[in-house]
Amino acid sequence: MARKFFKRYMPDPEKIKSNKSLRFMGTWLHDPNLFHLNRRSASLAFFIGLFVAFLPIPSQMIVAAALAILVRCNLPISVLLVWITNPVTMPAIFYGAYKVGAIILQVPTQDFAFELSLEWLIEEIAKVWQPLLLGSVICGVISGTIGYVVVRATWRFHVITRWKNRKHR
């Protein structure tokens, strides 16, 4: 099932551990749980990756990696899932999160005309940061929870199905 699929595309842990640019991490990358694929590790990695993907912050991959190391779940999956918010999907995702935050805070949504300048960016962020941040956290928690539950349920369903098939054979 998923284990075989993910293992096929997962990077080699030894390559990651021996990477010169990651030496500053020391022995933290030597934890076997960071590369282990089981139901707990994969579902937590999905939660972290999806949650961080909705946060409107730079360096989402670093945040996802730090959380995966802290929680000791699958590092490659959590970092990979952050790429759900890429330059193509980012405007739609963050606009949706902004709308959710504006609805919860009962703030009217701001209309704006795009202008490519630092002053415009600072002015607009000052207007929308509260609904954007609240909506991003709420959407991140909801999507992370959905991802967590779906991975756990799918993994369990697959295991039960394989047990039944083995029993019938």
Rank of each mutant, 00 (worst) to 15 (best):
T161W: 06
T89K: 02
R8E: 06
P91E: 10
G49K: 09
A92I: 14
R169H: 09
P56D: 04
R23Y: 01
A113E: 11
S21C: 00
A102E: 13
M10G: 07
L67H: 10
I103S: 12
E14M: 08
I122V: 11
N86C: 01
T85R: 01
F94S: 10
A126Q: 04
L75E: 10
I160V: 05
N19P: 07
S143H: 07
A64E: 01
Y9L: 09
E123P: 01
V137C: 14
I62S: 15
E123R: 11
M10P: 05
K15V: 10
L44A: 00
S21A: 02
M61R: 08
I93K: 01
S41C: 03
A64Y: 05
Y98P: 07
P108V: 13
W120T: 00
M25L: 15
I125Y: 13
Q130V: 03
N86P: 01
F47H: 09
V79T: 15
L133Y: 12
N74T: 03
I160T: 04
F54T: 05
L81F: 12
M61S: 14
I104D: 11
S78A: 15
L34C: 07
R8N: 03
N33A: 09
K7D: 04
F47P: 08
G96E: 13
I146C: 15
F114R: 06
L105P: 13
K167T: 08
D12R: 11
L134T: 10
G135W: 01
L50A: 02
T109M: 15
N38A: 09
R156W: 04
A92N: 04
A65K: 13
P76V: 02
S41H: 12
K99F: 11
K7W: 06
I125H: 06
V151S: 04
H158M: 02
I62Q: 09
T161E: 12
R23P: 00
F46P: 03
V150H: 13
I142R: 08
I16Y: 01
V128W: 00
L70N: 03
A53D: 04
R8H: 08
S143F: 09
E119F: 06
F51T: 07
G135D: 06
V71Q: 09
R8C: 02
R39L: 02
L37N: 10
R152T: 04
S78I: 12
E115G: 01
L75F: 10
M61C: 11
C139A: 12
W163A: 11
V63G: 07
A92S: 11
I122M: 02
T154E: 09
Q130A: 03
A102K: 05
K17V: 07
V79F: 08
N33R: 14
V79Y: 11
A65D: 08
K167M: 06
H168L: 10
L22Q: 06
G135R: 04
S41E: 13
I160M: 03
L105Q: 10
F5K: 12
R166N: 09
V88E: 00
R3P: 02
N74E: 03
A45S: 08
F112T: 00
I146M: 15
S117Y: 00
P11G: 08
V88P: 05
A113D: 10
A68S: 14
F6S: 05
E14R: 12
G49H: 09
Q106M: 03
A97F: 04
S78N: 09
V128D: 00
